[in-house]
Computed example of a mutant assay.
Amino acid sequence: MNSFQFQRISNWLIDGAWSSVEPAEMIADFCERLVAAGLPLWRFGIFIRTLHPEIFGRNFIWKQGEDVEIGSVDFEILETPEFARSPLRVVFEQGLEVRGRANDPDGKRFPFLDDMRAEGATDYIAVPVPFLDGSIHATSWITQHPGGFSDDDIAAIRAIIAPLARVSEIISLRRTAEMLLDTYVGNRAGARILGGQIRRGHTDTMQAAIWLSDLRGFTALSDRLPAETVVEILNGYFDCQVTAIRGHGGEVLKFMGDGLLAVFPIDEYVGDAAHVCARVLEAARESRASVEALAHPVGDAVERFRFGVALHVGNILYGNIGGGNRLDFTCIGPAVNLAARLEKITARLGRTVVASEGFANVCRHDWHELGEFPIAGFSKAQRVYGLAEETPVVMA
């Protein structure tokens, strides 16, 4: 390799790979610079483990003449035969390099290398990428050059790992922060927090459709079932709603025991309130069907479930609220309070879905007026609506 060009690549990484905006672009730029410097690279992969409840890691695969392929794998991969026989398992678990030259008998223990040889690969090396927190990630380097990588090539690969690790760790930490914020506070709130809206009192007024739901009979359920079983039930129950809410443009802000608070932002400049509320109603119907189909075996019995959801539309205060250095990014306001009060009425009326007069007026549908009800904290009684398609079921 050209030592001068190699040093420039190293400096470019140390400077933050500033010419590349996206990770995939950075990987492509990095590999092309190495090839231009004389490294006979045909295929490169970097595999970064993530701090995510469902995703074990992400991978970026570059191959000459092709776009960078981006993928992710879940934790189930750890139990697969493919991972058990992968050279990357050695890297992740032992932090060791794995080399596999053509015609190398030791490399036969890795089926992946056989696949690469079938495509003309002559040499392979997997190199650990240590982060400052002690976690081990991995890179793979493959060539089709006759004779494989030279000693100088291998030395260059090992030397470039440290600067590559630093810039990869910075990118990974940023993405981890985004994923954790998305997981724990929602994508809209997460984007605002990451953008610097972190001081107590930072709030915005937003018009939104409000969703507030809870599970029927949860207190009795918690009393008669083991805590572990209750957690399993809650997770399955919330899955029934979160998928529908997010699929229709909503954001889950908070889980409160068996309760769920979500908002569906309305763009006041576009005037899409009717469209947004129609999607909210569709999400409520999907959730109702999913919860009705939910069955959880407990011993010889099967638990079935019902829930109630109140829908309202109005202005909310959305932002940082809390005490000292412990804040919550949430929403408050009379509209949220009214939704919470309406949700309690669902059980009394034996309804799954109830809507405020404001929501029913915006979302034109076959609503059935259920009457006026006094609402604690509100001076006027509130008119409540239910879906004409629903048959009231009063639980004992």
Rank of each mutant, 00 (worst) to 15 (best):
N187W: 06
N187V: 10
N187L: 05
N187Q: 13
N187T: 13
N187M: 09
N187G: 06
R188C: 01
R188M: 09
R188H: 09
A189K: 05
A189L: 07
G190I: 05
G190A: 13
G190Q: 06
G190F: 06
A191K: 14
R192I: 00
R192M: 12
R192P: 02
R192G: 01
R192E: 14
R192F: 01
I193D: 00
I193C: 06
L194M: 15
L194I: 15
L194C: 07
G195V: 02
G195F: 00
G196F: 05
G196N: 11
G196Y: 08
G196I: 01
G196R: 12
Q197T: 08
Q197Y: 11
Q197K: 13
Q197H: 13
Q197P: 00
Q197E: 15
I198P: 00
R199I: 00
R199K: 14
R199P: 00
R199E: 14
R199L: 12
R199T: 10
R199N: 13
R200Q: 12
R200M: 08
G201P: 06
G201F: 13
G201Q: 07
G201S: 09
H202R: 07
H202E: 15
T203A: 09
T203R: 14
D204Q: 14
D204Y: 02
D204G: 00
T205L: 14
T205H: 11
T205C: 05
T205W: 04
Q207W: 11
Q207H: 12
Q207E: 13
A209G: 15
A209Y: 05
A209S: 13
A209P: 03
A209W: 03
W211V: 09
W211G: 07
W211A: 09
W211E: 07
W211N: 08
W211S: 08
L212P: 03
L212W: 02
L212M: 14
L212G: 03
L212S: 09
L212V: 14
S213K: 03
S213G: 14
S213D: 11
L215E: 03
L215H: 04
L215I: 08
R216S: 08
R216K: 11
G217P: 05
G217W: 04
G217I: 00
G217C: 03
F218Q: 02
F218N: 01
F218V: 03
T219R: 01
T219I: 00
A220M: 03
A220D: 02
A220Q: 04
A220K: 04
A220S: 12
A220V: 04
L221N: 01
L221F: 09
L221I: 06
L221D: 02
S222G: 06
S222F: 01
D223S: 10
D223M: 06
R224Y: 03
R224W: 02
L225D: 02
P226K: 09
P226Q: 11
P226R: 10
A227M: 13
E228L: 14
E228F: 11
E228Q: 14
E228M: 12
T229Q: 15
T229N: 11
V230C: 02
V230R: 02
V230Y: 00
V231L: 15
V231S: 11
V231H: 08
V231D: 06
E232P: 01
E232Q: 15
I233E: 01
I233Y: 04
I233A: 06
L234W: 07
N235D: 15
N235Y: 10
N235V: 08
N235Q: 14
G236E: 07
G236Y: 07
Y237E: 04
Y237P: 05
F238W: 10
F238D: 10
C240W: 09
C240Q: 08
C240P: 07
C240T: 11
